[in-house]
Nucleic acid binder design. Structure first.
Lengths: 212, 212
DNA sequence: TTCAAAAAAGGACATTTGTCTCGACTAAAT
DNA sequence: ATTTAGTCGAGACAAATGTCCTTTTTTGAA
């Protein structure tokens, strides 16, 4: 659920130091700041150096759907650059975020001139398709409780914690349903059973649950 | 819902005629034949020349989720080639299908040597991410009836018809729910109202509904 | 044409999820 | 300490969806 791409980040940082004259800058955003707005035209791509963002679609009926949480090395705005479209999603910082800002023209010329970069980009896009597809399938075909349990586990694994509202938006459900399922999980003690392989995970999970 | 990529197909056909010595073949599959099996290792990619296929994930609970219907110019197996993984999905022919078969090594060398091809591939992957993401959001956040109506409209637009089971699998619901919503739509006469702009569409829609 | 088997449709009930609302708790202001 | 506004959780009910099983329709063979 929290995507990262350290290889991609290394490449960018290396490129940055080796091409100091290139038109790349580093920007910081406070937690909560929405730095990309759905429907707007942008002329830069962003590569997250630090912090966590959420990428979400706001539907016309007022509901939000979180496509993915983005961490180190994830890129944003590249679809817009490649396909010359307005922003597909909103992107907002969840924690404080710093990101490399790269103008579209530089991004596009990198693709043309640097095959290492192109390969990394192809890898990134592939990963995204795989994750988006498998998640869509999973969330449509399994019960909410199962999906929620999996989501909590992922947070335990990655030692992060996401707000209740964001988790609900990620699962595509109301906060009410989220609370209900959460209670079921706690009552049943599902998080104590078989699926947790190590006690560290279980401990982090308890902490997570006590904060919700 | 039915993806096509005619630019991609043109490129392949041109490449094929210009490089007769290259290791590319044309294969045909009868309607219903599952030519890619989830979890298996493959060493070719397929580019659909003609016909319609469905690409679907079979979950462990026995349910299927249709990721997308694929028409002319759509490529299959490229994620597996790029990321060296076993097949993510099943792919089955819905109508009779003919497809170009290209070995992984040729596909990968095309990426390295032909920047036009790489650009087309980047476009294709981008489109896929966009479509998968917007669909996931839409299906999670809107009512079934709304999603179904949209699905029927798409079929009317594209002059194709998909079986009931496949539509249900695409929407991630049971056939029972599908039938219920369908009835609602017919009773309400939704397909006759505002959203249908031209009578050709409306006519095709009536034909579709009478076959369901 | 008739009948039996198979497939599809739909009714009934259970479960899940959403919406609306009220009450409990929190925190800040007086 | 009291009040008040705001937030959060959950009860109650409604709507949506799945499962199971009966009914209806279709198909194909005699």
């Amino acid at each position: 659920m929290l995507r990262t791409n350290l290889t991609f980040l290394s490449f960018i940082e290396r490129f940055c130091t080796e091409n100091k004259e290139a038109d790349m800058t580093l920007k910081s955003f406070k937690a909560g700041y929405k730095f990309i707005e759905q429907g707007e035209k942008i002329s830069n791509i962003y590569i997250i150096k630090d912090g966590i963002s959420k990428c979400f679609i706001s539907e016309e009926n007022g509901k939000d759907f979180i496509i993915e949480f983005l961490g180190k090395g994830e890129v944003v705005g590249e679809l817009e650059a490649l396909k010359k479209i307005t922003c597909l999603c909103n992107v907002a910082a969840i924690s404080d975020v710093t990101a490399y800002v790269i103008p579209h023209h530089l991004f596009l010329s990198l693709i043309n001139k640097n095959s290492e970069f192109t390969t990394l980009l192809l890898q990134e896009l592939s990963t995204r398709i795989i994750q988006t597809s498998t998640r869509a399938s999973f969330q449509q075909l399994y019960t909410l409780e199962y999906a929620l349990l999996k989501l909590l586990k992922l947070q335990a694994d990655e030692h992060i914690s996401i707000s209740k509202e964001d988790m609900a938006a990620y699962l595509g459900i109301s906060v009410r349903s989220f609370n209900r399922s959460l209670k079921q999980i706690i009552i049943k003690g599902d998080f104590n059973t078989s699926e947790f392989k190590n006690t560290l995970q279980a401990a982090h999970m308890k902490k997570l649950l006590s904060n919700l």
